[in-house]
């Protein structure tokens, strides 16, 4: 921004440069709304939140500077640290399940769709529709399906002789997080599918024809031609999964399990920890400073993950001109 402005001021005199100035002013004008909105609603709150995390609240509502005191408390106080590490660990499990279930499934579905089977359009729409549903609806529907009292899960498993498999998954410490993750996978599998599907469609037919002429089978074409070409998309899918895992997953857990991540904090993630710290929960009074600290930690963790990806992975991906 500043570059553009000093540029325009310096180069005002000559007529030829006037033309360049005109060419640039419209850039400023077009950028302005986005930059303004982004600054006011994203950058400013982010900085404000980081600032809040460096203060401590007093009983009379005023705040006092503590530096990194809140961070030390969060990471070293036994009562805080146990919740923080547990939430982070649960987030990582959530990410892992999405990476090994949702994304390969999305890839498989996209690969199948790109073969243009019959009713491909219908399948594509049906698989994508849950993505558009409100998490509250998804949460409520799945809670009912899996309910031991009114749910159809038990009956349906029983009908195929697998009734013994049934357990109240959402209520068991051992399976609650996996169950919630899989509900989220069900809802969001459409997104990687669509991204990968679009990437697959953009591969030129000549390349595939050439591969066929060279004698590659369909499976080999997928592994040796298509997959390398869509690797950058898979990278984007991975990073979107990583970020969504800290942001989008909160909605679902909040609507199904509530803000304490029951049972026994087994579905407590960074988002729920942040929510109840910041806004409070029943008799627990919201603490905006500790809440902002948890939120800032989330920001740093996302930042680190994205940086590792951008520096370590994306640069090494080979992009092919197609």
């Amino acid at each position: 921004m500043t570059d553009v402005i000093t540029d325009t001021v310096e180069r005002r005199p000559t007529p030829r440069r006037k033309r360049r100035l005109g060419g640039r002013t419209h850039i400023v004008v077009f950028l302005a709304p986005a930059v303004l909105i982004y600054t006011v609603f994203s950058i400013y709150p982010l900085i404000e939140s980081l600032r809040l995390s460096l203060f401590d609240g007093l009983d009379d509502g005023s705040a006092v500077w503590t530096g990194l005191g809140n961070y030390t408390t969060l990471l070293s106080d036994p009562n805080w640290a146990v919740r923080f590490w547990n939430a982070l660990w649960n987030n990582l499990i959530l990410f892992f399940i999405h990476m090994v279930v949702q994304n390969p499934l999305g890839l498989l579905l996209a690969a199948l769709l790109s073969l243009a089977p019959r009713f491909a359009g219908a399948y594509r729409t049906l698989i994508f529709v849950p993505t558009l549903l409100s998490v509250v609806i998804v949460g409520f529907v799945w809670e009912l399906i899996l309910s031991p009292l009114w749910g159809v899960a038990q009956t349906m498993l029983g009908a195929v002789g697998l009734g013994w498999l049934y357990a109240p998954w959402l209520g068991l410490e051992s399976s609650a997080l996996t169950a919630v993750s899989l509900i989220s996978v069900w809802q969001y599998v459409g997104i990687p599918m669509m991204l990968i599907y679009a990437a697959l469609l953009s591969i030129p037919d000549e390349l595939l024809d050439a591969a066929r002429v060279d004698g590659l089978s369909g499976v080999a074409i997928f592994w040796k031609v298509k997959l390398p070409l869509i690797l950058p998309t898979l990278g984007i899918v991975a990073i979107l999964t990583y970020i969504g895992n800290f942001t989008a997953s909160f909605d679902l857990i909040y609507s199904i399990q509530g803000v304490l991540g029951p049972p026994d904090y087994s579905t407590d993630i960074m988002g729920t920890l942040m929510f109840r710290t910041f806004f409070g929960q029943q008799t627990q009074i919201g603490d905006i400073h500790m809440g902002a600290t948890v939120a800032s930690m989330m920001f740093f963790i996302i930042l680190i993950g994205v940086t590792i990806y951008l520096v370590g992975v994306q640069r090494r991906l080979t992009r092919y001109e197609m």
Binding site: E143, L146, S147, P148, L149, W150, A167, P168, W169, L170, G171, L172, P263
Partner: peptide
């Protein structure tokens, strides 16, 4: 109830 671990407040009310 059976599988009370997944039985919520509104489930109990309805039961």
């Amino acid at each position: 109830g059976p599988a009370y671990q997944a039985q919520g407040y509104s489930d109990s009310q309805n039961l």
